[in-house]
């Protein structure tokens, strides 16, 4: 797609969309949203970028290796955080009783492991969306060039 208008608008909009996505991820425990929704927003912004420019520009911003790493990393982080509670002598995925600091309710850095879980889920979901889209489009490009 080679459209100047789309590109300029995209360049303007994408940072704000990403900022909003990060806001939704990090404020999951304070306001509606959370890892899933925020991750999807961030992932959608990356897809939007790749759609408006091209795939190479998109994968320069987020390479395949990094995306794979983020994808596994988010899920692994979730499980490891659960194991931390177990090492502290509580059951898997325990939050308060395992001694994660709850902080003052209403602050950004509060509610212990929930903040961490949201971020992990956000990473996971965002990179999942990107990976899926890139691979689908990439496959079709290869397919078309071979024909």
């Amino acid at each position: 797609m080679e459209d100047l208008l789309v590109r300029i608008i995209c360049r303007l909009v994408v940072p704000f969309v990403q900022l909003y996505g990060l806001y939704v991820i990090t404020h999951g425990h304070l306001s509606p949203g959370g890892g899933f929704a925020g991750g999807a927003i961030v992932g959608a912004s990356m897809i939007l970028f790749a759609l408006a420019f091209n795939l190479e520009a998109g994968s320069r911003k987020l390479s395949h290796d990094i995306s794979l790493l983020m994808e596994s990393g988010g899920a692994i982080g979730f499980i490891l955080a659960g194991f931390v509670a177990m090492l502290l002598g509580q059951n898997f995925l325990t939050n308060k009783a395992a001694g994660f600091p709850l902080g003052v309710p209403g602050n950004l850095f509060s509610s212990g492991a929930i903040f961490f879980f949201s971020v992990a889920i956000g990473f996971k979901v965002g990179s999942t969306m990107c990976t899926l889209f890139y691979n689908l489009i990439e496959g079709s490009d290869r397919h078309r060039s071979s024909e």
């Binding site: 899933f36 889209f133 496959g139 079709s140």
Partner: peptide
Amino acid sequence: APDIAITEAALGAGVTTFLFIATISK
């Protein structure tokens, strides 16, 4: 249910549409 609303808007209206379009392009 604002949580579900945000998720539905991002996933249903956003990402799913992109993925479907990518699939159709294949």
